[in-house]
Computed example of a mutant assay.
Amino acid sequence: MPRRTTDYRGLAESSRVRLLRAIQLSPGSTLRQLTERTGIHENTARDHLRTLEQEGLITTRPLRSGRRGRPATTYTAVDDTSTNEAAHRRVERALQKRRLLRTLLPEHDRTGGLAEAAVHQLDVLQEHLDDTGFDPEVDPRRMVVGLVPCPFHRIVSEDQELACAAHARLLQDTLAQVPGPVRLEELRPFVTPQSCEVRLAYYEASE
């Protein structure tokens, strides 16, 4: 199928996934620190980091050192859309699209009984998974999302633990971008040879 205009390019390269994982593990890292940890050449890493920022996956800040000259740039994964305009636009588009679909196809809406904030979180999560290249099957009542196929199969073949950990954290951050009670409980890779499963948890406000 042709690539949708909203699809993530940021996760299409294994080097970008490695950089994203390094940032997730050490937020506020500089370019030099990231290249040392990943072994990726500085010029290549700089281009990949620019793409990750444009895709709304990471945000940049200057490192305040108190020294003269241009400050180094630090990189942090996005869990707050106020830090990245691309992430903010993605959330807004996801909410608008899912709201419209529920209006046009009410017979397919299975979110009844969930708080509005939880529905918004699921909307954004489903759009993220669609954009990433999964074919998510969301069950709001069981709070389970089936994923098939895995678009990271090439990266998984190189380093499954890294690829799955990076995406699990990305799911967590995606849910955090919308205030609500839904949290990631577990990403279960390859529950079948062709599919993975996301398990979510619903936390009441008092918790």
Rank of each mutant, 00 (worst) to 15 (best):
T111S: 09
D139S: 12
R141D: 01
F190G: 13
L49T: 00
T132M: 01
C196H: 13
H128C: 11
T6Q: 12
A205G: 00
R110W: 07
L11G: 13
L184T: 14
F152M: 12
R110Y: 10
P140W: 03
P179Q: 11
V198S: 09
R4N: 12
P179D: 14
P2N: 14
A168I: 06
L63P: 04
T44L: 06
A22W: 06
M1P: 11
R4Q: 08
D139N: 15
R169L: 13
L122W: 04
H108L: 11
A168D: 08
R16E: 05
V156A: 08
T83P: 00
A72C: 01
R99C: 04
S82L: 09
V17E: 05
L101D: 10
V156S: 05
H120I: 00
L162P: 12
S82R: 12
P62I: 04
I40V: 14
Q172H: 13
D123S: 13
K97A: 12
R199N: 02
A118D: 11
R67G: 12
T81K: 05
R90Y: 12
N84G: 02
T192A: 14
L100W: 14
R142T: 01
A12D: 15
L25W: 03
G39K: 02
E13L: 07
T73N: 06
R37V: 06
H153S: 08
R32N: 13
R61Q: 14
G28T: 11
E36V: 05
G69D: 01
T35Y: 00
V145I: 08
T73M: 15
E36C: 02
G69S: 09
R188C: 13
V138H: 07
H88R: 11
T83I: 04
G180L: 14
E13H: 13
L101F: 12
L200Q: 08
L20M: 09
T35S: 14
H120Y: 10
R68E: 09
G180F: 14
T132C: 02
V138K: 05
Q172R: 15
V78P: 11
P193C: 01
V182T: 03
S29D: 05
L114V: 07
M1E: 12
V124E: 02
T59N: 09
E161A: 15
T76P: 00
R21N: 10
R154A: 10
E53Q: 11
R18V: 04
A163Q: 04
T60L: 04
H120Q: 13
V198A: 06
T35P: 01
L52F: 03
E197Y: 01
E53L: 01
V119W: 00
A176H: 08
G133F: 09
